[in-house]
Write a protein that binds this DNA or RNA. Structure first.
Length: 490
RNA sequence: CGGGAUGUAGCGUAGCCCGGUAUCGCGCCACAUUUGGGAUGUGGAGGCCGCAGGUUCGAAUCCUGCCAUCCCGACCA
């Protein structure tokens, strides 16, 4: 454990990298672009998984598992899909190694696969190939399946959690009898993601639709939630795709409707990944370390004893054990850290770095007065309170912290969201304060591309339920009926 | 994948220009004193100098190739 963290002002990007490794979330592995998610980081991911999984099941979905490998030929069946992923696929060509006689292990050329296997970058193709066998009638629909898996995309430039060559995610793949039902599903899952981001991660998000250029390869419509990080850059936190009949047509998945008519099945897919971990870190944390929302914190409360001698330590431990039991009874995860190998100040700093929402410190003084010192991570405020009713107090405090973190993130987003009406203003805001910029756009990919090339800002989304208003495109001056959200993004 | 930078003990580094087996701090181990915000003292351990070749009597240092990381581009969840 080393002292000090680069501050956000000094170098935001370095702050992020240091924080992820120093807080024990993840580290680089021996494999380029691939990370090791360490136990502390993984336990946060597990909390995310648990919350999301429950929400998926509450909306009628079941989990299943499909293969890691996809035959190459499957990819070419959906034209825009292959185009979108072809340049970043890991390909398995052989199934055996051998000893070359000089003590080196080499690929056995005799063990060449007849058809190469692609390590899945996403599973639409293998799943729709499977669904063909599952669906004959409208009675077989809908199919509401989710998969928790790892995928591989051979990214050129990687960053821990935000973009790794291999990442963990969930991908939902649903099949429906009607277009309306599929769109409804797409929107429902976007809503699940938004609710999760806001209620669990305490990250406010904009719900919107991607423009044609930013759409998922093979989708008719891509819905997304967009979050804003502290440095004013946007992060796509989750996507939900309406795939139309594209994959059903590519994999020949037809069903007989109630009316006896043969038709292609309607599809959706939706996913969030370990990238959410990056969002969580960048949205809330400060120069002292992580700030975790209580609902996702592996340890919600830590108790640090401060003692002189074994006798006092034993007395404090007795009281602490009672507090631990009381908190556990309320389903609050608590750690009593009575390690004698580290001093209190060290522990304080360590738990701040790791983002534990509430710290209770208890020493001889408290023992006499029947009090404890409570410190909250989000505001760093300390308070000495009576042990009487401590559990209720902590419970309420955790809720308050959850809410406060959200409010802070929301206030930051509001402060960093700007309406502009000219291209000059657009560029100026982008370079000075960043954030979301709400501006009129003529709706053409050409304009979007030109703005991206000139400013590095992309259209993050067209917000859902967007206010309709007449205006002129900031670049071309052509008429526009609504504003869209621009930002520089991760 | 293009441009730039970096790689020396667990971490951060000096040494490299000008070749002679490696400096310092933190951390680690032992003991003692300590414990209300990252303790102090004494003693100790720890190094394929990113990897592989080459030049040389001799390479952390010079040359070539490779690998990885960071930053900037293009690509992307």
């Amino acid at each position: 454990m080393s002292k000090g963290l680069t501050s956000r002002n000094e170098d935001y990007s370095q702050w992020y990298n240091e924080l992820v490794t120093k807080a024990d979330l993840a580290e680089h592995s021996a494999v380029r672009g691939c990370m090791v998610i360490k136990p502390y980081g993984y336990s946060i991911w597990e909390k995310m998984q648990a919350a999301l999984d429950k929400m998926f099941k509450d909306t009628g979905h079941s989990n299943a598992y499909f293969p890691l490998f996809i035959p190459k030929s499957f990819f070419s069946k959906e034209a825009s899909h292959v185009e979108g992923f072809a340049t970043e696929c890991a390909v398995v060509t052989h199934y055996r190694l051998k000893n070359d006689g000089n003590g080196n292990i080499i690929v056995d050329e005799d063990a060449k696969l007849e058809e190469e296997l692609i390590v899945r970058p996403t599973s639409e193709t293998i799943i729709w190939n499977t669904y063909r066998g599952w669906i004959q009638s409208y009675r077989d629909l809908p199919i509401l399946v989710n998969q928790w898996a790892n995928v591989v995309r051979w990214e050129m430039r990687t960053r821990l959690f935000l973009r790794t060559a291999e990442f963990l995610w969930q991908e939902g793949h649903t099949a429906h009898a009607t277009k309306e039902e599929a769109i409804e599903e797409t929107e429902r899952m976007l809503d699940v993601y938004a609710t999760f981001a806001e209620e669990f991660m305490a990250v406010p998000v904009i719900r919107g639709k991607k423009t044609e250029t930013e759409r998922f390869a093979g989708a008719l419509d891509t819905y997304c939630i967009e979050a804003l990080m502290q440095d004013g850059k946007a992060l796509q936190a989750g996507t939900s795709h309406f795939l139309g009949q594209n994959f059903a047509k590519a994999f020949d998945v037809k069903f007989t409707s109630k009316e006896g008519k043969l038709d292609y099945v309607w599809a959706t897919s939706w996913g969030v990944s370990t990238r959410l971990m990056g969002a969580l870190v960048m949205a809330h944390s400060d120069d002292a370390g992580l700030v975790l929302p209580p609902k996702l914190a592996p340890i919600q409360v830590v108790i640090v004893p401060i003692y002189k001698g074994d006798e006092e330590r034993a007395k404090i431990s007795e009281v602490a054990d009672g507090i631990v039991a009381g908190l556990k009874a309320r389903n609050i995860s608590v750690k009593y850290d009575d390690r004698d190998t580290q001093r209190p100040g060290f522990k304080f700093a360590e738990y701040e770095l790791k983002g534990v929402p509430v710290r209770i410190a208890m020493g001889g003084r408290d023992l006499e007065n029947g009090t404890v010192e409570i410190a909250r991570r989000d505001t760093k405020e300390k308070q000495t309170i009576s042990r009487e009713g401590l559990e209720e107090h902590i419970s309420a405090l955790l809720d308050e912290i959850q809410q406060n973190i959200y409010n802070k993130a929301l206030a930051l987003r509001n402060e960093k969201t700007t309406e502009v009406n000219s291209y000059d203003e657009f560029k100026q805001v982008l370079d000075t304060k960043g954030g979301f910029i709400s501006a009129h756009w003529d709706g053409t990919p050409e304009t979007e591309k030109k703005i991206k090339e000139e400013t590095k800002a992309t259209i993050r989304c067209i917000p859902l339920n967007n206010k309709q208003e007449e205006g002129a495109c900031i670049l071309t001056g052509k008429p526009s009926s609504q504003r869209v959200l621009f930002a520089r993004a991760y």
